[in-house]
Amino acid sequence: MTGHVTPIRNAIVAASTTRFVDANGLRHRILTFNDDTVHDVVFIPGITSPAETVAFIAGAMPEYRFHVPDLRGRGLTEAAVAGQYRLIDYADDLHGVIEALGLQSAAVIGHSLGARIAAAWVVRHDINQVPVLLVDPPTSGPGRPPYPMAKQSFIAQIDAAVAGTTPEAIRAHFPLWPLRELELRAEILAECDRVAVSETHDGFEREDFFTIWDQLGSNVALLYGALSPVVPAGAAAELAARNPGIPQIAIPAAGHMIPWDNLSGFVKAARDALGSAPHPVTPSLTTSTQNRT
């Protein structure tokens, strides 16, 4: 995919380190924030969130070096062919990126789609030694209520972004967001591939998160918005009953987009879940993957 530089994006990219790696048959872009720290977090964003959208979260947690990939078909990561936007595809992308960057000791945080990806990665690749935080994973699926935002709404937002949307138009969908994040979304939403988003949204309805959840272990924690329609009270209760060993933290005054709705609440919960002692230090990243074009 091809990106264009816009004012907010330009500032974010200038303040981060850009890396490209080949993994799982695609070329992936990763932005790294807080590059002068030594405790690593891989943050997996949501369905229409290129890596730049995580900059403000990294800025609020400066003790961690954040590595944020563009998901397949978003930002500057290559798009896959139709039919390859399943959780297994995303999970293998994540595994390949982590291996390519030597981040096997890093904690992993996934938000929304990213939380589903992180969970699938844990199960598919038998990950049990690093902390994994699942932030408001969609609990829709076969026989369950649908994902709250319809696929047509996502596609309409992308089409509007391609035509030239505004922060005010974005605010209609995300009324609680800060202006800067609305402006950023208006700048980069057009870099989300329609097929990628459409097929991924289909997966929210077709792929069963609960069967993945049942297989997760004690290295996983769940953070969810107390007001989130994506993890409603009934779903949270069922998750607790099915896998009681996984701690759950409800973030007050937050819906699905937790860091955007209540950043301080998210940061406190994430720090608590990661524990007072950061995970092992990851050796310095090899220069061969830095700033490749």
Rank of each mutant, 00 (worst) to 15 (best):
G25D: 02
R29K: 00
T139D: 01
R29A: 02
T32F: 11
R124L: 11
A115W: 00
N128T: 09
A119F: 06
L94G: 07
G102V: 10
K151W: 06
I44V: 15
Y147I: 08
R65G: 09
F66W: 00
Y90H: 06
D40T: 08
L94M: 13
A100I: 08
L101N: 05
L113I: 00
Y64K: 09
E99K: 13
D136W: 03
M61W: 00
F66Y: 01
P45N: 13
I127L: 12
I155A: 09
T48K: 07
H111N: 08
G83R: 07
L103D: 03
Q104N: 08
F154K: 08
T53L: 15
R72S: 02
I88E: 15
S140I: 14
R65L: 15
G25S: 02
D93M: 14
E99C: 11
A119K: 01
S105G: 09
V68N: 11
Q84H: 15
G59I: 13
G110H: 07
N34T: 02
V41N: 04
P137K: 10
L71K: 05
V42K: 05
H28I: 06
L94V: 14
A150W: 10
G46C: 06
D126N: 12
D92A: 11
Y85R: 03
T53N: 09
H125K: 11
L134I: 11
P148W: 07
V123L: 10
A55K: 02
F66V: 05
S140K: 04
P131W: 08
L87V: 13
A120M: 11
G83A: 08
V42Y: 04
A100Q: 05
L31G: 02
L113E: 00
T48E: 03
G96K: 12
S112M: 04
L26P: 03
K151S: 11
R86F: 10
H125E: 07
W121T: 02
F66M: 02
S140E: 04
Y147R: 08
G46K: 01
S153T: 15
E63C: 14
H125Q: 08
G110Y: 02
H67A: 15
A156E: 13
A120D: 07
A79I: 11
I117D: 05
V42L: 11
A82K: 10
F33P: 02
P62Q: 03
D35V: 14
R144A: 10
D136T: 03
A91R: 02
V42E: 03
I47C: 05
S112P: 01
A119T: 01
Y85T: 01
T139N: 03
F154R: 06
L26C: 04
A156M: 14
I98A: 12
Q129H: 13
E99V: 12
I30K: 02
A51L: 12
V42S: 06
I155R: 05
D70V: 15
V81H: 15
R72Q: 00
D136Q: 05
D36A: 14
R65Q: 11
A51H: 04
L94I: 14
S105R: 12
G96V: 13
D70Q: 12
V54W: 07
V54T: 04
S49D: 07
L87Q: 10
V41R: 03
I127R: 09
I47M: 09
L113V: 05
A106I: 11
T53F: 08
R116F: 10
A106E: 01
S153P: 03
A51D: 05
P137G: 06
A80P: 02
D136A: 09
L113G: 04
Y147M: 13
I117T: 11
G75L: 14
G96Q: 10
